[in-house]
Design a protein around this nucleic acid. Structure first.
Length: 477
RNA sequence: GGCCCCAUCGUCUAGCGGUUAGGACAUCGGCCUCUCACGCCGGUAACGCGGGUUCAAUUCCCGCUGGGGUCGCCA
């Protein structure tokens, strides 16, 4: 049977990097098995959910290149895919549970329970508040504000075999009569997720380890409904560098921030997939390779700590290698970052000519746009320090002479230019070192750039000569 | 605190009874060189502790210690 996987975001913000990883594992398995990847929006918390957030999350998915087969915008045979639109489904099923005595209405108010909880905490901060079961055996069901609670068995234990962690067993006594439906009639997570996973024919639920404690409750619900539960796979956590829960305080945690920093999408996916999953010594993967390599047997159990440096390096690796980011892809990816610098109509051909020279230098697309800037800005921005250091009185005549000697080079290629320049230098009793930096500043405005003659070729004969001469003028003054 | 889970370099990890414990990032040297990079060569650096099992434990079992998760009318 083809597996059906899902990712079920709560639309209360951006797509968290940890959420992206969970989604990725699901998506990879679906894609590698020819299965189905379902996107379901868990918007039962009306206060926190927003449509902008749904949009942000879907945009992040698109940017990452993870497509969904069923869900928002694409529909599918198991809809609706917004939980807020599935209320009648939950309602009917919960009423069945109540009729069968497997759940009950609880009339205790949140305020009362909160008060009790706080009292207990005041006395013993480490004590766990457990619902006292006030309404558990109540026989009347008046039509007053209430929540619905599950009647958790007091005996026995709930067990399952996790695809990553193996056998996990939890005593039912450790579970309380958890709430299924709140006063406003909206279902809570465990109820809605269970019902939807079943109705949507989900075969494997893969999620982060912080959900491991929800699994027994959900299993209890499957049993109560008489349904066959799906398989479960829990992923080790992605922790902050300090080892606690990863949050904004530590680093950028939204996928969008990495996009804005100029990380390539596959760089992001590649870094997060290696978190809790490995494939021998291979660290860098293209998308197709990743789909083929992925498997649950190579998912580890230990939590990991987030490392910005490693992340940046993986992203860079993807930008650097043409087999991972093609020239076309690189060019179109860097465009928005050039736009942001005001370089809005960069010729495609020139851009593609310039990229190979900056690929191995630019660690992000932000860097790339910066490294490409002087090719497309006329005149190039001039770095003051570089000017003072290299555009000296001594340099002026050399730049003039260099422009002169290079003006007749044919063809205008790096090799030919280098040969001519070296020949000229030799005649003058000079070495590359005696004019290279001055020429670099003249050409790029900076003291660091790709090799001189490569820069010249990208600029073309006319601009090269003009910039060298302008450099000479600047050097005189 | 109850319940659940985890444990190899600073970090991500390989290892699935016998290895000089491997790779990558980071870090420190060096080489290359027209600058900056890239690349290349090399160094420092790990099996948490204690018991078993075994001819042999990083590897299997138990305990301890340490770490994490969870205990909401959030998901």
């Amino acid at each position: 049977m083809k597996p059906r996987l899902r990712f079920a975001p709560s639309p209360s913000g951006y797509l968290h990097i940890g959420g992206a990883r969970t989604a990725l594992f699901n998506w990879l398995w679906a894609r590698s098995q020819g299965g189905t990847f379902v996107m379901r929006v868990e918007d039962t918390d009306q206060e926190r959910s927003s449509i902008e957030s749904v949009r942000a999350i879907l945009d992040a998915f698109r940017w990452l290149g993870m497509d969904w087969d069923e869900g928002p915008e694409v529909g599918g045979p198991h809809g609706p895919y917004f939980q807020s639109e599935r209320k009648p489904i939950y309602k009917e099923l919960v009423e069945g549970l109540i009729r069968e005595g497997k759940a009950y209405r609880c009339y205790c108010t949140k305020e009362e329970l909160d008060r009790q909880r706080e009292q207990l905490k005041a006395r013993n901060p480490k004590a766990a508040f457990v619902y006292p079961g006030t309404c558990r055996d109540r026989t009347d069901q008046p039509d007053l504000p209430h929540v619905v609670r599950f009647k958790t068995p007091r005996e026995g234990s709930t067990e399952f075999v996790d695809k990553v962690f193996g056998a996990i067993s939890t005593p039912n006594a450790a579970q309380q009569d958890f709430v299924l439906v709140r006063t406003d009639g909206y279902p809570l997570y465990n109820l809605a997720a269970t019902i939807d996973d079943h109705l949507m024919d989900i075969t494997l639920v893969a999620r982060a380890r912080d959900h491991i404690g929800n699994t027994p409750q959900q299993l209890l619900l499957y049993r109560a409904f008489g349904w066959e539960p799906p398989e479960f796979a829990h992923l080790p956590m992605m922790l902050s560098p300090q080892g606690d829960k990863l949050s904004k305080r530590h680093t950028a945690v939204s996928v969008q921030e990495y996009r804005d920093r100029g990380f390539p999408p596959m760089g992001v996916l590649n870094y997060i997939v290696r978190f809790g999953w490995s494939f021998g010594d291979q660290e860098i993967f293209g998308k197709q390779q990743l789909i083929e390599a992925f498997g649950w047997d190579r998912v580890g159990k230990g939590d990991g700590k987030f490392d910005d440096k490693k992340f940046a390096d993986v992203a860079f690796e993807h930008l650097k290698r043409e087999d991972l980011t093609s020239l076309d892809e690189y060019a179109s990816s860097v465009k928005p970052f050039l736009d942001a610098r005001g370089l809005t109509d960069v010729p495609e051909a020139a851009l593609k000519a310039a990229i190979p020279g900056i690929r191995e230098r630019a660690r992000t697309l932000v860097d790339a746009a910066n490294d490409l800037d002087y090719y497309f800005r006329e005149p190039p921005e001039l770095d003051d320090k570089a000017r003072q250091k290299f555009l000296t009185k001594e340099a002026a005549p050399r730049l003039e002479a260099l422009a002169e000697t290079l003006s007749t080079v044919e063809p205008f290629t790096a090799d030919a230019l280098e040969a001519r320049a070296k020949h000229w230098a030799e005649q003058q009793g000079l070495s590359m070192k005696d004019f290279a930096q001055a020429a670099r500043v003249a050409l790029s405005g900076r003291s660091a750039s790709p090799p001189l003659f490569d820069v010249m070729v990208v600029l073309g004969r006319e601009r090269t000569l003009a910039r060298l001469r302008r450099g000479a003028e600047l050097a005189k003054s």
